[in-house]
Design a protein around this nucleic acid. Structure first.
Length: 275
DNA sequence: AACTATACCTGCAAGC
DNA sequence: TGCTTGCAGGTATAGT
């Protein structure tokens, strides 16, 4: 489900409710997510602690605790992280419920169970947890020079390259298509064939598309909801994703769908330059 | 080393 | 209606 904008929208919604609150108790469904839910670590490091602040790295959402520990959520394809009134009965696929000291609870619901919850203990090095993740799209490190150096000699399609979390954090299947449309570059172009100017366009497009998606509350294709169970509306702003057969908003050519590395890919053959 | 296919899991829509 | 099939926002791992 969620790419960088959706995770950020959830974080922005949660932050005012959870910041400064103590975690009073925890309910676990007992079902394993992508990784086993660390029940012992939650008991030892989370219960009785206050949430000092929230964070995000790539598609991971962080809740940092007063004792130096952190909860690290990943929502996989179908995960939801919502604020609910305390005491509501568990719904189907509710896997983690954290009761807070203000009458609310934070609930992780995930039908497909590709998501995860992991605990960083107070002494654990968070840099090593994220050591394989590339720079954030809004950071200075996400530069033409960096991308050029990562892409040199690479034959793989630029779309697959952009979706690689070790290259850049947070860009998934929807936004990869949208960013390449905005940049005017065909998704099948070999990454190594882009020059400095092309990467500059992609960087500019990435920031613009992701920023607008956050402002729109994320993209709801199937079932994304924010922390208050509300849908986003960036799906109305998508210019190529899921729009095969429609006319390109920029040049009128029919938008095409294809498959790249097993993922649906959308582009305009008229105005996205093939390199 | 670089890259792709597969596996993980449930739900839903489309087609028959 | 009910069955089957394919597809869905991610990513770790197996395989070429």
């Amino acid at each position: 489900m969620p790419e960088l904008p959706e995770v950020e929208v959830i974080r922005l919604g949660l932050a005012p409710i959870v910041t400064g609150r103590e975690v009073k108790s925890c309910y676990l469904s007992g079902q394993s997510l992508r990784h086993p839910v660390p029940a012992e670590d939650i008991k030892t490091w989370v219960l009785g602690q206050k949430i000092s602040d929230t964070g995000r790295r790539a598609k991971y959402l962080l809740l940092n605790l007063n004792n130096g520990a952190s909860l690290i959520f990943h929502l996989g394809m179908s995960g939801r992280l919502t604020i609910n009134p305390a005491g509501q009965a568990s719904g189907k696929h509710d896997h983690v419920r954290l009761l807070l000291d203000n009458g609310f609870e934070l609930r992780l619901n995930d039908a497909r169970r590709f998501g995860s919850l992991r605990i960083l203990k107070p002494g654990d090095d968070r840099n090593s947890f994220f050591k394989k993740i590339g720079p954030e799209p809004f950071s200075k490190a996400f530069s033409p020079k960096y991308l050029l150096s990562r892409a040199v000699g690479r034959a793989r399609p630029v779309k697959n390259f952009l979706m690689d979390g070790e290259v850049v954090a947070g860009i998934g299947n929807i936004y990869a298509s949208e960013i390449l449309f905005a940049a005017g570059i065909n998704p099948s172009s070999p990454a190594g064939s882009l020059d400095n100017k092309d990467w500059a366009k992609i960087i500019k497009a990435s920031k613009a598309v992701l920023k607008k998606a956050i402002a729109c509350g994320g993209t709801t294709i199937m079932d994304f909801v924010n922390s208050s169970n509300e849908a986003g509306y960036f799906q109305n702003e998508l210019l190529v994703y899921k729009r095969e057969g429609e006319c390109c908003s920029r040049c009128g050519t029919t938008i095409q769908q294809t498959k790249m590395a097993g993922r649906a890919t959308y582009y305009c053959p008229g105005c996205q330059r093939q390199l």
